[in-house]
Each structure stands twice: as structure tokens, then as C-alpha cells.
Write a protein that binds this DNA or RNA. Structure first.
Lengths: 344, 344
DNA sequence: CACTGTTCCGAAATCGGTTACGGTACCGAT
DNA sequence: ATCGGTACCGTAACCGATTTCGGAACAGTG
């Protein structure tokens, strides 16, 4: 069954496509009788407007492009879910691409999205990306871009991020409030702003409690893996005065550290408290359950798409684009791994 | 900066759009000199063909729609990742939607995808879906549909699924090979074909080892949750002759069961072996690590999109559509939770 | 009867490309 | 000089809708 066009309806009724179009979109200049006739035959012929023809005429794709480093990641799944819920409510759709944390591929997919046609772009930069010329090029073609999570100050665009500083600060003060005094930190690679903020939050919390910053209590991940967490935990335990608490840059590192601690015969949280970051589902499932800092992924997706849709509308109204910079709070989830048992 | 059109180039050069078009698409009827001139000015004016105009003329969207019940799920993330990698290599893009396991919403999003324009659809049915009239309607509009994971025999379409029967069979025979003889099963809701196949595989494995099927060793989940796993584990332990091994319909149930076992003072795998299904990342991270049956999510995405793209091509060539039904093997991942320790 | 004003619809431009078709100019061959 | 052939380019139809403009038909008024 072929899809009926305006002309098909017009020919069967002996009128022109203009009349049919007017009838279907209840325009003023149409008689009630012909309107009814057109509507009836349109229904009968299973008419549906051709998406491309409408969009070409309207100069609107009704599509936003999304670029994330990796879809197979609970945080990004959350973000995407938030994006979809917002944009679909306004009749937009989501074109999804992943960069696989590759700068090359990020350029390629943004170019592909531009070529295939989108009204705007939501981008989380790859870890490799330092130059944002490819995104600036998109902006010059009047394509609004909103960055989230991994952002770059080199681009004049709206941004939505987690408050990594505050999340880290809250996590460490939580440990300090429990009475732990020697808090170690396994930090992430130096480059991404997120991990730098977490490190800064760690230091600020120590300073707020008048505790010294001890470099031997800080290790820097390269791969941000399970194995690295375990290795650094062993390194910390081998110190003359080992730490009594650990703030890990992300949950997988925290879990690796906990595995190593168990193998060394140390109990969590009695001998060492542990708190992670990202609040993966696994944190609630393991024993002891792991405290973590939850990132508002779904909300990041929502707010970022709201900003983008607003900019798309402003562009259509030929108003100047307003950029906003949102910083959404992280919330610490206190579980067993960081709760100091009451000492009798 | 506005995007240049063919007419812009044509006017600045004093030729017609046809000439420009031919030059850009290296058509035969064009002189080398004008071709060079056109290419140069096109470059200078940052010309890029308007996606909608091309697609309208070509009658190809270069887009496939994807509908999954829930994006925030590692299995579906894997599938989507596989889909994207395949279709992007052929110049297609992915429009993503989720049904939230709602029949109503599944209908709504498929209608939206049809209205917005796609060349084909990859669908994983929601748990609520029994009637597939909405998908059959799409097929009548010459829109190829490929089902994956959650399928329905009521639709004449290609399908790609995991071999749940074989995965379950392998999991249970693995337990039996280890010497466990009283294997329990926590099954999923009765409706989805997947969980029925897993139950069937469980029964077939018992039968192959001449073991009796004991109804008291089978429990049926409703919410398929962590909590249900724990509750059923306690129920099993309260039996006069408790089971010594457990095959859970999915990992979260297995983890819930293991938590309850630990609280009851039972050791895994010494007192009870456990194997799950889906092979979530958490299985490798916890202690003891959890054996599980891995579903080939990425491959399902790849194969399903290959089938869909082939059908799209067949439709374009006006050939009859060939439907295929692929069943991809699941692979068991043996870890600590199901390895019977060597008894000295 | 002429004039004005509605009401309703058709003609045509438009969005930005693609492509079949036709025509001009120029070549060499007869 | 005429013809056939080729190279190159313009004209225009086309994809399927939206929307402006103008005109026909008809009613009402002076």
C-alpha cells in the first residue's frame, strides 16, 4: 500500500492540492462542505503528510543530535533518557551517536549529524578533545550546541554539568564527620575538568577541617580501572601510617580498592571507610553496600535539552542566543562502606 | 553565516543550478574547466547540500528508528551500540525511542517515528505488548520492521534473539557437572518468551541428567527484583531439604539471593552455588564473583541492523522481502559463585 | 444596472536539490 | 555545403508539501 499524497486526494476529488492542504490544516478560506469531503477521503485513503516535504518547507528537522563518548555507560544512559523524555514531548526526535572517546570520531560524527540534518546538538566531549573547532564550525552554520558533563571553556555555548567540587567536598566532609581523620584520595587523570574538581573538593574539605594535605595519601589513576583501585589501596596500606578512609574518583576504583582491602584482611568500614563517585547500581547490590556520590544524569539530560530547545526557538525567532551555565548538585548516598560503627 | 545553496553558486558564476549540480556530483556532461571553477567556489562559499532536499528527491531518509523498552539497561545499551556501529558505517543514522515497557507508549513512539520519517524500524517489544497491529500497520506502509530480544510470532518479520533455552541449559548442566544435584530456579514472569525458554532449558537440563523436577525448587518472580531474589532464597533455605544450587532468571535476582544467603550464614558456593543471567558488569566486581550467562547484546544489535538494512535495500530494488530468524548463542561465564571447591 | 464586498478556490511560487530532455556550438567527414 | 557526432549546458519537470496572490462567483446595496 503506497502512501497517499495531497495530489492523490486532489485528483480523486477534482480539486487542487491547495484546497486539500487548506482543508486538512483547517485554514480559513474553505467551505465547511468541501472540508468535510476532503477530511473524509483523506481518512479513507490513509493520508499522512510526507515528513520530508513538510520539513523542507518549514526548514525544521525536528531532530536534535546527541553525541556521547559511550552509550554503554549507566550515566550516559540516564542522560539520554532525560533528553528523550523532554524533546519527544515537544515533537522532536533524538539522533544518537557515540565518539568512543576518540577525538577523530567525535569530529566525524558531528559532521555526519550536520550533513544528515539536525536542529541542534547536545554534546559530551570525549576525553581526548581539547580543540573545539569542529563545534565552533557548527555554530557558524547557525546550529546551536549545548555541552554537558565534559565541557570546554573554549566554546561559547550553554553548559550543564554536575557540581563535582561540591560532591567531592560533601563526600569528604561526610567521612570527616564520621571521625575519620586520614582520608586518602584516588584521583582521575589530570585532564578532564571533572576529576580536577573532585580533587579540589577533596582538598577544600580537608582545609575546612584544618587537616594537612598529605601527598602520600593521593594517587593518580591512568586507566581509572578496577585494577588500579586495588593497586593503590595496597600502596596506601603499605604506608607507615595508612589512611583510615578513602575517597575514590569513581565507583569502579572504589570497588577495586575494597577487593584489595578484603584480600589484605582489612574490614570496610571498620579499618577503612570507602566512598565512591557516580552511584552505579552495583553500589547498592554489594556487601557491604558502597557509599557514593550520585550524579543527576537524568536531570542533566533534561536541563540540557531544555536549554537547547530554547536556543533553537530563539534562532527561529531571530533573537540573540542566550547561553546559560547550569551546575547541578550531586547528592551523597551514605551506605555501609562509610558509616563508622558505634564503638562500644 | 548562512549556508550557500546551489543557486547561490550558480548566480555568482553566471550558470544554472543544473550545471553546478553536475559539477559537484562529477557527472559526465561537464567540462573540466567549469567543474574546477564550480568546485572552487563551492569550497569558498562553504557549500553543503541541503539534507532534506536531497532526501526528498531520493525518497530516502537514511535513518532507522530504534524502540527499546528502557535505555537505562546495560543489555539495551549494548544492542544500541551494535546498531549504531553498523548503520553509521553505511551512512544511516539512529533515531532512538523508549517505550518504558508500556504498550500505549510503544504505539505512540512507533507512530511518531513513522510520522517523522524512517527507512525502517528495529523494535524490542515491551513486556505488555501482545497485539502487534501497530507494527503490522507500519509494514503495510512499506516500512520494514525487525524484532529483537522480545519478539512476537504474530508479526511476519525478521527476528534476532538470544538462545535463552541453550543458555539456561548450559548454566544448569554446568552446575550439575560440578556435582550439585538439587538445583533450584527462580523464574521470571510467565509471559515473556525469554523467561519461558530459560525455564524450559532448566527443565531440559534436569531431564538430561535424569533428575526429578521438584516444584518446590521453583519460584516465580513478579517484579524480577533484588528483594524477590532474597525472599525466594530464604524460602528455599527453609525447605526440609534445601537446594544446593540456584539458577536465577537474571543477575539482580541472583545478587538478592546471595545477599540473603550471606545473612543466613550460608556460604557461596560451598553451601549453595549461584548462577545468574545477563552477565552484568557487577558480576565481575563483587566478592565472590558471580557466574552468569552472557547475552550477545552487541551482536544482536549488529545482526538485527544488518537484516534491516538488507530489507530496506530489497524494498528499494522492488524485490520481495526475505525474512530471517537468527538465534544467537549465549555463553556462560563461570566465576567463583558456581565453582564447587575441591573437597580435601 | 453598476458597484462593493464576501466566500471560496485555483494558479503559481517556494523550499533546495536531481535529472531527463532538448538545444547550441563546434568538430571532422563526405 | 551538408551531415553526423560529440561535448557542453540550459530548460523544465519533479519530489510533496505550504502559502501568497488573484480571480470567479455570488450576494447585497445604492
Amino acid at each position: 500500500m503506497k502512501r497517499a499524497t495531497l495530489r492523490d486526494i486532489a485528483q480523486t476529488l477534482g480539486v487542487t492540492v491547495a484546497t486539500v492542504s487548506r482543508a486538512l490544516k483547517n485554514y480559513p478560506d474553505i467551505s465547511a462542505t468541501t472540508k468535510q469531503t476532503v477530511l473524509a477521503t483523506a481518512e479513507r485513503m490513509h493520508y499522512a503528510p510526507h515528513p520530508l516535504a513538510v520539513k523542507l518547507r518549514q526548514k525544521a528537522y525536528k531532530v536534535v543530535g546527541v553525541v556521547v563518548p559511550d552509550i554503554v555507560h549507566p550515566f550516559f544512559s540516564d542522560v539520554i533518557s532525560g533528553i528523550i523524555d523532554v524533546v519527544e514531548a515537544l515533537g522532536y526526535h533524538v539522533l544518537l551517536s557515540q565518539s568512543n572517546e576518540s577525538y577523530e570520531k567525535e569530529i566525524r560524527v558531528t559532521q555526519m549529524l550536520l550533513a544528515t540534518g539536525v536542529d541542534g546538538l547536545l554534546v559530551c566531549l570525549s576525553n581526548e578533545t581539547v580543540d573545539v573547532g569542529h563545534l565552533r564550525a557548527l555554530q557558524e552554520y547557525d546550529l546551536p550546541v549545548v555541552l554537558f558533563d565534559k565541557i570546554n571553556s573554549g566554546l561559547d555555548a550553554s553548559t550543564v554539568v554536575t557540581n563535582d567540587f561540591q560532591g567531592a567536598y560533601d563526600a569528604v566532609t561526610h567521612l570527616l564527620d564520621q571521625g575519620y581523620t586520614r582520608v586518602a584520595h584516588i584521583k582521575g587523570p589530570p585532564h578532564p575538568e571533572n576529576t580536577r574538581q573532585r580533587f579540589a573538593g577533596y582538598r577544600a574539605a580537608l582545609a575546612a577541617y584544618d587537616l594537612p594535605f598529605r601527598p602520600e595519601y593521593v594517587a593518580e589513576c591512568h586507566a581509572v580501572s578496577h585494577a588500579e583501585g586495588a593497586a593503590f589501596a595496597r600502596q596506601f596500606m603499605a604506608l607507615p601510617e595508612p589512611p583510615d578512609a578513602l575517597f575514590a574518583v569513581t565507583d569502579s576504583v572504589a570497588i577495586g580498592a575494597m577487593t584489595a582491602l578484603r584480600e589484605e584482611g582489612r574490614r570496610v568500614p571498620q579499618d577503612m571507610a570507602v566512598i565512591g563517585f557516580s552511584d552505579w547500581a552495583v553500589c547498592q547490590l554489594v556487601e557491604p553496600s558502597i557509599s557514593s556520590v550520585a550524579q543527576p544524569g537524568y536531570d542533566i539530560g533534561r536541563r540540557a535539552s531544555e536549554l537547547l530547545l530554547r536556543e533553537i526557538q530563539q534562532l527561529r525567532d531571530e533573537q540573540p542566543l542566550e547561553h546559560h551555565h547550569l551546575v547541578l548538585d550531586a547528592t551523597i548516598k551514605v551506605r555501609q562502606s562509610s558509616q563508622r560503627p558505634i564503638v562500644g
